[in-house]
Design a protein around this nucleic acid. Structure first.
Length: 800
DNA sequence: AAAAAAG
């Protein structure tokens, strides 16, 4: 009692002040701006059911608005100026919370969003257990009156010690016994906003409650129990969860379990996370385990193509691996050389895996993918199975030779005058090879798969014939109000959807067609409004498109052409199913166009269901020699990484830096800013407005450095990025190709620098081999000339 | 790990 009440309260307050003195005092003011501690209790006389009478006597609102606003501003300033303190507090004061934060690291990095969340989005917080205690303190005074009336409660608590331990039950109490709270929340925002930082973080604050409790003897008995529980049990609990499971006991009793593969995943996740990163070990295992599986695949060649099924298997048999892509490539890696040795690519040009090349009349082998299997039938066994993977990586296609198409203009390919003029306006006077290859077959209405390396002009390759095709289908018809779209273009990211729209819209407008974007992260009203008026071409991302589809606001039944940009990516785990549902909603027999720089067998899932005798194209001679991108790998010490990045980024041209996580991307952007190099970030934790703005900042040249996650890896075109830095090496060769493809576009020169540590050399070597890229590995330390060279500063510095 | 929907 004494501890908790005044003495403790006083102590706590003092303890507080050294740290957050300003806030604390300000807090006190806030609680009862006009009244001191004693006044507070007095105001809550049980006779009048607490607040009402008192609030009338001393209007809460008036007080809050006047004194409180000042306090709030003060608090904000304090907070803002003391940003650096936040992390420290959080770690010191609420260990439990820190676990929560692990789940939301990204949030904390978004500076601009913090204030908004606090003010506007708080409701979500209410679900945060760590916050509840704080609220409960705020509100207890109110409750206390109830309790005075309901002594029974205290008994309940005594009787239900278990509850307090059971976090799952707490919410129930709140919900069941004190519904009033939920209404109190409307008041909370103000209080909690200002006070939260201090209270929520510090358990030392509780003493403050003690003041309230002084008035409620009944409580005091409870408190003796509470504090102990809270203090002693809670922290323990959070940690107990690992132990609690009673698993530990179970394990002791059931050694067999340890052999149960289904349980392993948990262990892996909890006990040895390091493993997942230790790839040097896995390959060995996988090699041992696979043979057996591979035999299965021999019997089921179809499966091996179907990625949908793989994950399932993996999930069941080897969960950890299934997420480790570095394992998969490894398999194919063995086969890689063979692919080059073999005739597959050489004799590919005249053939198409999926049937018909435009010139030839290759018929589709019976049974779809089995055709592939038949070719390799003699090989059999594991080798066969691996070969299948190899084929998966590359897709046989008709190679379009750049030389053969030069001379043919867009008009000759079948595009109308307006369109040709619009293309010229976009800087496409004459077709690039991929464009020359695809325009005609698309106009014919064929399903097309096309691979053209990054920056080779794929957007126009599908955009122009798409527009022409829709135009022809509408020839002579009036554009009806509220007409349903005739074509849809799907992209994996909003930025890419926007970018595609910029090109396609220009083309469509030139012939009187309309486009609209349908992507998430922005209010849907405008999109819906456009759809209501009627558009011809919808360009967007799967999530929102499916959303509007389900809402009945988007009718795809008239879609006669569907395009998948970055098609292989759209066939990956999270994308495939929505994409399938969307495609199924299009008009039966609609034409499908799949484009990507890394188009491979991964698209099989879609091809089998949606494409009919597709033509497959690639551009001949797309090897590193014909590329304008220089690749470098710097082998560095991890401790030098930050400074080396600073050094690389400190340059004149536009630089795109790739990081693996949103948090690291954000961190790097800040780091560069702090180093005096203005930089912005682009990743999925930013709101769409900011994403768009930050990308635009790079495009317009207002900043020269953009730090992005792989959200910017594919498709994004910024004219003159001449250096791509991979602060984190990619895990997939495809990712490497796409990231590096952000530079060296349309024949311009560019450099790609990948930073790795020594341990990663081998993996990087394998990845580059898969990407068929040769790059020198250079041991690099701080201050080395190579850094100056890469940043373009070598001349000035060396000469000077 | 990232991306893709959220009134």
């Amino acid at each position: 009692m004494p501890k908790n009440k005044k003495p403790a309260g006083g102590r706590a307050a003092k303890n507080f002040e050294p740290r957050y003195g300003a806030k604390t005092s300000f807090q006190d003011r806030k609680r009862r701006p006009g009244t001191e501690g004693p006044a507070k209790p007095g105001s809550k006389s049980p006779n009048h059911r607490g607040y009402r009478p008192e609030s009338e006597a001393t209007p809460d609102k008036g007080r809050w608005n006047a004194a409180d606003r000042a306090g709030r501003t003060e608090a904000r300033n304090i907070r803002t100026s003391a940003r650096d303190d936040r992390p420290a507090r959080s770690f010191d004061d609420r260990p439990a919370r820190s676990f929560d934060r692990n789940d939301r690291p990204a949030r904390s990095f978004d500076r601009d969003e913090r204030p908004r969340r606090d003010a506007g989005e708080r409701p979500s917080r209410s679900f945060d257990r760590s916050d509840r205690p704080a609220r409960s303190f705020d509100e207890r005074p109110a409750r206390s009156f109830d309790r005075t009336e309901r002594p029974a409660r205290s008994f309940d608590r005594t009787e239900r010690p278990a509850r307090s331990f059971d976090r799952d039950e707490r919410p129930r109490r709140d919900a069941g016994e004190r519904p009033a709270r939920s209404f109190d929340r409307s008041d909370r925002p103000a209080r909690s906003f200002d006070e939260r930082p201090a209270r929520s973080f510090d358990r030392n604050e509780r003493p403050a409650r003690s003041f309230d409790r002084t008035e409620h003897p009944a409580r005091s008995f409870d408190r003796d129990e509470r504090p102990r529980r809270d203090a002693a049990d809670r922290p323990a609990r959070s940690f107990d969860r690992n132990d609690r499971p009673a698993r530990s006991f179970d394990r002791t009793e059931r050694p067999a379990r340890s052999f149960d593969r289904d349980e392993r995943p948990r262990r892996d996740a909890g006990e040895r996370p390091a493993r997942s990163f230790d790839r040097s070990e896995r390959p060995a295992r996988s090699v041992e385990d696979r043979p057996a599986r591979s035999f299965d695949r021999t019997e089921r060649p179809a499966r091996s193509f179907d990625r949908d099924e793989r994950p399932r298997r993996d999930a069941g048999e080897r969960p950890a691996r299934s997420f480790d892509r570095s394992d998969r490539p490894a398999r194919s890696f063995d086969e890689r050389p063979r692919r080059n040795d073999g005739p597959s690519r050489d004799d590919g040009p005249s053939r198409s895996d999926w049937g018909h090349a435009p010139g030839g009349s290759a018929r589709r082998d019976s049974g779809g993918w089995s055709g592939r299997g038949e070719n390799n039938t003699p090989k059999r066994s594991a080798e066969h199975e691996q070969r299948v993977d190899v084929v998966h990586e590359r897709l046989q296609a008709e190679a379009v030779d750049a030389a053969t198409v030069t001379g043919a203009g867009f008009a000759e390919l079948g595009l109308g005058d307006n369109l040709v003029r619009a293309l010229a306006g976009l800087g496409a006077a004459s077709p690039f090879p991929i464009q020359a290859a695809t325009v005609a077959p698309i106009l014919e209405g064929r399903d097309v798969l096309a691979r053209g390396r990054t920056g080779s002009g794929k957007t126009i390759a599908f955009g122009a014939p798409l527009v022409e095709s829709i135009l022809r289908s509408q020839a002579g018809q009036r554009r009806e109000f509220a007409r349903a779209p005739k074509a849809i273009i799907l992209a994996p990211t909003r930025e890419l959807a926007l970018q595609i729209d910029r090109t396609v819209q220009a083309l469509a407008r030139s012939v009187g067609l309309f486009t609209t974007q349908v992507y998430g992260g922005v209010p849907q009203a405008r999109q819906v409004g456009a759809l209501k008026k009627g558009v011809d071409i919808v360009i967007g991302t799967p999530g929102r498109i499916e959303d509007l589809l389900n809402q009945g606001k988007l009718d795809l039944s008239q879609v006669q052409v569907a395009v998948l940009d970055e098609a292989d990516h759209m066939c990956e785990l999270g994308f495939l199913e929505p994409v399938q549902r969307i495609l199924r909603a299009t008009k039966k027999g609609s034409q499908k166009l799949l484009f990507s720089a890394t188009l491979d067998r991964e698209v099989a899932a879609l091809v089998d269901e949606f494409l009919v005798e597709p033509a497959v194209y690639e551009v001949a001679g797309e090897d590193q020699d014909s590329s304008t991108i220089e690749h470098r790998v710097l082998v560095i010490e991890h401790r030098d990484k930050a400074q080396i990045l600073d050094s690389l980024v400190d340059r004149a041209g536009k630089t795109l830096v790739f990081a693996r996580t949103r948090a690291y991307a954000e961190m790097l952007a800040e780091q560069f800013d702090d180093a005096g190099i203005s930089a912005v970030a682009l990743h999925g934790d930013l709101n769409q407005q900011k994403r768009t703005r930050n990308l635009e900042k790079l495009t317009s040249g207002r900043v020269n450095v953009l730090v992005a996650t792989d959200v910017a890896a594919r498709g994004i075109h910024v004219d003159d990025i001449d250096l791509v830095i991979q602060a984190d090496a990619p895990d997939e060769y495809k990712t490497y190709l796409h990231r590096s493809g952000r530079t060296g576009r349309a024949g311009r020169a560019g450099t790609v620098v990948t930073l790795i540590t020594r341990q990663r050399r081998r993996r990087m070597t394998e990845l580059l081999d898969r990407a068929e890229i040769e790059a020198p590995f250079e041991e690099t330390a701080l201050g080395d000339d190579v850094l100056e060279e890469l940043s373009g500063r070598q001349l000035s510095n060396v000469d000077a």
